[in-house]
Each structure stands twice: as structure tokens, then as C-alpha cells.
Simulated scan of single mutants.
Amino acid sequence: MKESPGVVDLLGVLAYAELSAYARMTEDAATLAPSLADRAALSELAVTEFAHFRLLRDRLAELGADPGEAMSPFVGALDAWHAQTRPADWLQALVKTYVGDGIALDFYREAARLLDPSLVKLVDEVLVDGERSQFAVERVRAGIEAEPAAAGRLALWARRLVGEALSQGQQVASARPELALLLMESQQEGQTDISRLFAKLTEAHNKRMAAMGI
């Protein structure tokens, strides 16, 4: 298989993103969930994130890469993102899971467009967020219905998340030239440019905001 430049970097950052999501969801389930049903539901989603991490880890090993080494360049940026966007309550945690993680994963999905088909399939599998999206949207909408004033607060939180996520993406790309090249090549193939990419990301973000009612 002919690998695209930056493929190990892309799988490495995704693997660490999934591992971090698992750890964060587990913590949020234990400390922020308002009911045992919510704790169980979020814990189940966390298990799915860990399964995605294992798929990526195993594929990195198949490619002859050390999974730990592939993930290590991205630990600082992703840990900083989570530290800077630690949710204060349950609704903030759900918005972060849906909006903040969503725009970051959209960014990586674009970078995967020109990979080998088997890798594209893997990336699509680990980036699927149907159950997570439905869970977050239902809980946030219910929270806003119970407390309408929460909508404005959550909208401000979502805007902050997007700013931090885009900043994180820029840091990762600048630190890993091959990953940045992979992203640029995917955009050239689609006869577009980075401004179009960010417009696409913003459009997806606006749809998520609308889905949650904020």
C-alpha cells in the first residue's frame, strides 16, 4: 500500500484524540452526570471511544509504526485543549462533546480524503458520531427547555470551544508539516482552498448549534 504523507501523524492524532475522549467522558460521567441513567449512557459512549482507539492503535502497528510514538507529538496540544475547555457542568460537557469535538474531527476527516481506501474506511468508522450526537442533542434540548436562560450561556461556551479547537488544529498542523501537507493536498484535489475548508467547518458547526437549539 502506498501511504500518503502524514498518514502516521493523522492516525496518531486521531488515536490520541479517541483515547482522550474516552478518559474525559469517563470523568464527566462520574463527576457531572445528573442521574445514574446519564452516567451509564455516557460511560457506554466512552467505551465506544476506547474501541475506536484500539482500532487506530492496531492499524498503526500494522503499518509498522509504534502507536505510542505516533501519538506522542500530539499529547501537549490535545491535553492543553482539554485543560482550557474543562466544562463547569453537565450541559457544558455535552456541548463540548458534540460541538467542540465535532469541529476538530471534521478537520481530521478532511485530511483523510486522499488516503488509501482502507484507511479512509477506518477513519470514517472512528469518526462516526451518530449515537454521541443524538445523546448530546437530546440532553441539551431538554436542559434548555427546563432552563431557557441556559441557551445564551451555552451559545457563548460553544463559540469559545470552536475558537479553541481551530487554534488547536493550527498548532498541530504547524508542528507536524507532513500532516499539514496531507490537509493541503486534500484541498487541492477538491479544487478549493483553506478559506473554503474553514467555511465548510463553520457550516457544520452552525448545523450542530441549530440541532441543539442554541
Results as ranks from 00 to 15, higher is better:
M71Q: 15
S72D: 14
P73R: 05
P73G: 05
P73I: 02
P73L: 03
F74L: 00
F74G: 04
F74R: 02
V75Y: 01
V75A: 13
V75H: 06
V75M: 03
V75C: 01
G76N: 15
A77N: 09
A77E: 09
A77M: 05
L78G: 02
L78W: 00
L78A: 00
L78S: 01
D79R: 15
D79P: 12
D79M: 15
D79N: 15
D79V: 12
A80E: 11
W81A: 15
W81D: 13
H82G: 13
A83C: 03
A83W: 08
A83T: 05
Q84E: 14
Q84M: 14
Q84C: 12
Q84T: 11
Q84N: 10
T85S: 06
T85P: 00
T85Q: 11
T85M: 01
T85D: 05
R86C: 09
R86N: 12
P87M: 11
P87L: 09
P87Y: 01
P87S: 09
A88G: 11
A88H: 08
A88R: 14
A88S: 11
A88W: 05
W90G: 06
W90E: 01
W90R: 03
L91S: 13
L91T: 07
L91G: 05
Q92K: 02
A93P: 04
L94Q: 14
L94G: 07
L94E: 04
V95G: 02
V95M: 01
K96Y: 04
K96L: 02
K96Q: 13
K96N: 02
K96R: 13
T97E: 12
T97Y: 06
T97M: 14
T97A: 15
Y98V: 00
V99M: 02
D101M: 15
D101S: 14
D101F: 10
G102V: 12
G102F: 03
I103P: 04
I103N: 02
I103T: 14
A104P: 08
L105D: 09
L105F: 10
L105M: 12
D106Q: 14
D106M: 08
D106P: 09
D106T: 14
D106N: 15
D106V: 06
D106W: 13
D106C: 15
D106I: 07
D106S: 13
F107Q: 06
F107R: 08
F107S: 04
F107D: 08
Y108S: 03
Y108R: 04
Y108H: 08
R109I: 15
R109L: 10
R109E: 07
A111V: 06
A111Y: 03
R113P: 06
R113H: 09
R113S: 11
L114Y: 12
L114P: 12
L115H: 02
L115T: 07
L115N: 05
L115M: 07
L115A: 06
D116P: 10
D116T: 00
D116L: 07
P117T: 03
P117M: 03
P117Q: 01
P117K: 01
S118K: 04
S118D: 13
S118P: 06
S118L: 09
L119P: 06
L119T: 04
L119N: 01
V120T: 10
V120W: 03
K121V: 08
K121A: 15
L122W: 10
V123Q: 00
D124G: 13
D124V: 04
D124H: 08
E125H: 11
E125P: 03
E125A: 09
V126A: 00
V126E: 00
V126D: 00
V126R: 08
V126I: 08
